[in-house]
């Protein structure tokens, strides 16, 4: 087998491209620009930490199925952790969003980073919503019968039936978490590829 043949392989080309865009020292950096020095920078990683706890508690709830938490105090406690990690997730994500907005963090070829973040937020709203309608309690009865009108009015109700528990649970535990996690992964990789956005240049300040 010739070297050029190996060079031409899809696998080789993908590996080289990935390694070029995201070498190990960019993927797992050990330094960062000195301007990254504010508490506002902790809300991205806080969102990630909360997401990992949402998923972990969701996994535990999955072990014994969707109705376990109604009858077990351990199950109810895990459900409580699931709820509060979701509250912290959105809390941190929104503070992160505000921070990135005021930094205009899309500058310098970071538009895709911003966009994946926004789409992750929207997917997360959907993931949370399908969780609320999968609770199998009064809350889910009320929320689903109310939400159906909003969704049916757009025509989406013909496919996305919020009154179908099995369908909503599948969206909640398979499709939307997968989307949220994949989008988050892309978002974080883009941050690592492009780096953290530098400060605005100020004429009066010593920016150089």
């Amino acid at each position: 087998m010739s070297t050029t043949e190996i060079e031409r392989q899809w696998t080789t080309r993908l590996r080289k491209r990935a390694a070029g865009k995201l070498p190990p020292e960019k993927l797992l950096p050990d330094t960062q620009p000195a301007y990254v020095s504010s508490w506002i920078y902790v809300f991205g990683v806080t969102t990630l930490a909360a997401l990992s706890l949402v998923i972990l508690t969701g996994f535990i709830l999955s072990i014994r199925g969707p109705q376990w938490w109604h009858s077990s105090s351990i199950g109810h406690f895990v459900n409580s952790m699931h709820l509060w990690s979701v509250e912290i997730f959105f809390f941190a994500m929104i503070v992160h969003l505000w921070g990135k907005f005021f930094m205009a963090a899309w500058r310098g070829g970071r538009t895709a980073t911003w966009m994946t973040g926004v789409v992750t937020f929207l997917a997360s709203v959907g993931a949370a919503f399908t969780g609320y309608v999968s609770q199998t309690n009064f809350d889910s009865q009320w929320i689903s019968t109310q939400a159906k009108d909003g969704i049916n009015a757009t025509g989406a109700g013909s496919i996305f039936n919020v009154l179908n528990l099995g369908q909503m649970l599948m969206w909640h535990i398979v499709l939307l978490p997968l989307a949220a996690v994949l989008l988050t992964a892309v978002h974080v990789l883009l941050v690592r590829i492009k780096g953290v956005v530098p400060p605005f240049e100020e004429k009066t300040g010593a920016t150089k």
Partner: peptide, 14 residues
């Protein structure tokens, strides 16, 4: 566009 950063780097343990 973002200005090119030529300043200092600090240790960072991700």
């Amino acid at each position: 566009d973002a200005p090119e950063y030529k300043g200092k780097y600090a240790p960072y343990d991700i």
